[in-house]
Design a protein around this nucleic acid. Structure first.
Lengths: 159, 159
DNA sequence: AAAAATATGTCAGCTTTGTTGACATATTTT
DNA sequence: AAAATATGTCAACAAAGCTGACATATTTTT
């Protein structure tokens, strides 16, 4: 059962070595998991007229109130010009507001408004439910293992 | 340091309940894990002049030789016009070839060429190493748990 | 005080990768 | 013969990334 279907036999000879050294299985599981995970909030986003880029911004600002523009750029790993477009729309629509930094007045500290907070929570909800279901089906103790694995997949401090 | 501004305190009370019910922690871990996981092959892709869309196509065709265009569309969940652009480039560059379906001559069965296979493996290699490192640091038995969790995150058959 | 560095914003143009809609061709099914 | 299917293609458009250049306010350094 764990082995070959008929389609596989055609290329097993050449690829056998690589198939043993490369973890195609988890590569693909990650792709499918993330593909469906990110599609969860799409219905809500469509109603707001926003996209996934807006989702990420609202999420992180909601999670870390008072973060600066530079913080956000570092988290998202995109350019400030990319962020500007999305952030401006969120500010103009009243989902995010800015405040001049209390110590360094060049900085803009970012906060979600009530609406922004509500949006962030609404978007997170179906994703959270998907995670809870998957963890429940995986078994007890899964949460700790999954957390350690995912944390280990992230790059270290050096950016 | 944390809640210096009145803005913070305003919604802390409201949000406490949500923070308990919504799994923000794993949502974020997934984001960072996937962000860095997908950035692994970027250096190789840049040399080939391809993007992440090409990566996905070469990967799945390499993994399931003989898959049809319809199979690939269903896997990637994009439109045929989106796929066409990328697929055509890969065929023209000699990384993927097509063969008329032996039973249904309307179908085009897709195969990687030698170059395509080499590219697919080269792209998978850093990702696989990242996974192996993360699993090793997570501990014994992690692989099974992670597999079960990721599989559970995917949508069921019904599309 | 002057100069340099920093944080942010903005303009302009480009690329990749997705979308819809319409239509063409070959082939298979009804 | 007609309808359905698998694929390809044209055209226009949208989302979200990019680079480069430059402006403004503010802080840090000299």
């Amino acid at each position: 059962m764990a082995g070959q279907s008929k389609e596989n036999t055609r290329y097993l000879s050449d690829a056998a070595a690589d198939d043993d050294t490369i973890d195609f299985e988890i590569i693909e599981l990650l792709f499918f998991a993330y593909r469906d995970f990110t599609s969860d909030p799409d219905a809500i986003l469509e109603k707001s007229g926003f996209g996934r880029a807006h989702h990420r911004v609202v999420h992180f600002v909601d999670r870390e109130p008072g973060m600066t523009v530079a913080d956000l750029l570092d988290t998202l790993k995109i350019t400030k010009q990319s962020l500007a477009r999305v952030l401006k729309q969120l500010i103009d629509s009243g989902y995010i507001r800015q405040e001049t930094g209390p110590e360094d007045r060049r900085q803009r500290m970012l906060y979600t408004t009530e609406e922004g907070q509500a949006l962030a929570r609404a978007l997170a909800e179906p994703q959270s439910r998907r995670i809870a279901d998957a963890l429940a089906r995986t078994g007890p103790g899964a949460r700790e293992t999954v957390k350690r694995f995912l944390a280990g997949m992230k790059n270290n401090a050096a950016d």
